[in-house]
Design a protein around this nucleic acid. Sequence first.
DNA 1: CTTGTCATGTTATTCCATATCATATATCCG
DNA 2: CGGATATATGATATGGAATAACATGACAAG
Lengths: 172, 172
Amino acid sequence: MTSGMRPVPEDHMAPIGFGDHDHDTCVENALTSAEQLCRENGLRLTPVRRKVLEMLLQEHRALGAYAILDRLREEGFGSQPPVAYRALDFLVRNGFVHKIERLNAFVACSHPGATHSPAFMICRKCDAVAEAQASTAKGSLGAAARAAGFEIERTVVEAEGLCPDCTKKARK
Amino acid sequence: MTSGMRPVPEDHMAPIGFGDHDHDTCVENALTSAEQLCRENGLRLTPVRRKVLEMLLQEHRALGAYAILDRLREEGFGSQPPVAYRALDFLVRNGFVHKIERLNAFVACSHPGATHSPAFMICRKCDAVAEAQASTAKGSLGAAARAAGFEIERTVVEAEGLCPDCTKKARK
DNA sequence: CTTGTCATGTTATTCCATATCATATATCCG
DNA sequence: CGGATATATGATATGGAATAACATGACAAG
């Protein structure tokens, strides 16, 4: 995704929360749009890469590299770590997937194709992950960085806590 | 640090950047104040824990658990992973040390004793780490979280980029 | 003294990640 | 077309991060 970036339409930004939605359609759409994005940008969404993206879209949770690897093996792909890591590297580099540093794990991006610095809400109970925009960090951290002479290139913002579902369950 | 928390005086907040400073004194002071904080709060800053804290204070960089472990071995402490991880756990739990998720590594806190949600600036070239305040994330992320019904308990904010020194060197 | 708690030691295992070398498959260009 | 170049996969090995599980020691409270 070195070129062809464009802001994503608002209506695609909406369903990034913990709410219910038509998951099959959601996965379908995401895969189709990923294919198109790759075509437009001369990227190769090879079978392994597509499979890994599909797996991550199926979950709305972070998957570890070895969980991914296990499933790849079941599907008849190579089963050595580099297979998963290379696919993940491609998907992360091109904005289809994000790494959750807190968990050393990966989630599908909620609105690929958009230039964005994501922020994540991670449920410590069920590992669900929701993506939001993190224009925020530019604010006071940006000021601190300017003051210190530090050049920010990338920012990781990850909030840990309880998702709506688990909050409800906890109250019972 | 379950009690006895108090805002840290402004003059202690200042030297959190990348600038030069009298390092020996800085380490000394930090250790002394850690000891006092522990005494006040009924915490035991045992030899291993003290040593680990001292090591982290010596560097102004993140150290991996195994780097720490190596040095512990040299100093005659136990050399199995749990030794380091337990000491680190204590230091993190009580606010003397922070974990840098991006690096799977640890840094000494710049102003322990203060209730704070830290933000970090991490140099991708030399691994130097500076700590700043992250009141920021409460802003737009907080709004997103409220909208989604997500209860934030902790926030990780880590900016990656080039520190002043490495920026200068890069320009040459 | 014994019971409980906290800290440490030790062994083993699991998970995360990458270096390296070999092989295959596109893609570009003469 | 055919060869050069870049990109993708396969496979082996290894290193680093993290924790589970079990045993021992130190010490304070009852």
